[in-house]
Amino acid sequence: MPSTAALVSQAFNGLALGSLLALVASGLTIILGTLGVLNFAHGALFAVGAYTAFVMMQATHSFVLALLGGCAIMLIIGFAMERLVIRHFYARPDEDQILVTYGIGIVLVEALRAYFGGNSQRVPVPSWGIGATKLGFMVYPTYRLQLIGIVAALLAGLYLVLYRTSVGLVVRAGIENAGMVGILGIDVRRTFLFVFAVGIVAVGLAGMLYAPVVAVTPDMGASFMVQSFVVIVLGGLGSFPGAVIGGLIAGEIISLTSAFDSAYSEVMLYGLMALVLVARPQGLFGTEGRV
């Protein structure tokens, strides 16, 4: 039985992991909800984000500049992916969309491996995040605390965009019925482009912020992608609040179970998903019949 201190520490780890999962899943869920595309390249884009942070840190020696430059790069990647590939698959069957995004994911991961090699890279913790912070009842790595705060601020920003702006209003309407948004005179293609790019920047930012905590490898996004799929099923397909709450629940379940036996952490996650699907098939915040 782990000590209380170990459990509290794991709960904080769960918060850090959960907030990142929330950010990744938010991008995934608004893309799925609005565009109807399940983006299987999301995990690869998480890794691309982490490598972007690695390259930009080497070039600028500033984590903040690396984040800003990384966002610009992810934005360009998002625009290019939507314009050049995804747009041509909106009207195609689901399996075509899955195959093409899965294919893009493989190309991106292998491109990272070809350029950077298979060995892991390290992104240093930013100078303002080095060391540990005393919380009274325990000592916790400073950067991880900052990570939770930064992701919370990003999610709050995304919330404000979605719920307090006209663009967000269109996106939320589009998640429900993109065809009707078009009938009401709004160019849904432009909205789709915006949503896709925001989703890609969100997952890229998650990768950048996670990079100082782990070894950066081309395959680092694989488990995040699978977990974020579970998160959007838990939270409800297309639901932003669902992605946030689902991400936090998933992060805590994985981390707290790891305190007892890490082999069971994913088992517990899938067990919970199964329970939610039985009790509430549309997910915690989903609407029946959606997507």
Partner: peptide, 26 residues
Amino acid sequence: QLVPEERAVFGGLTVEENLRVARLTA
């Protein structure tokens, strides 16, 4: 302007938000 058979009201948006979406490009 089409008022479709299935009504296609945005269920997660309020009445006022439904109207605000509609007037955006009018």
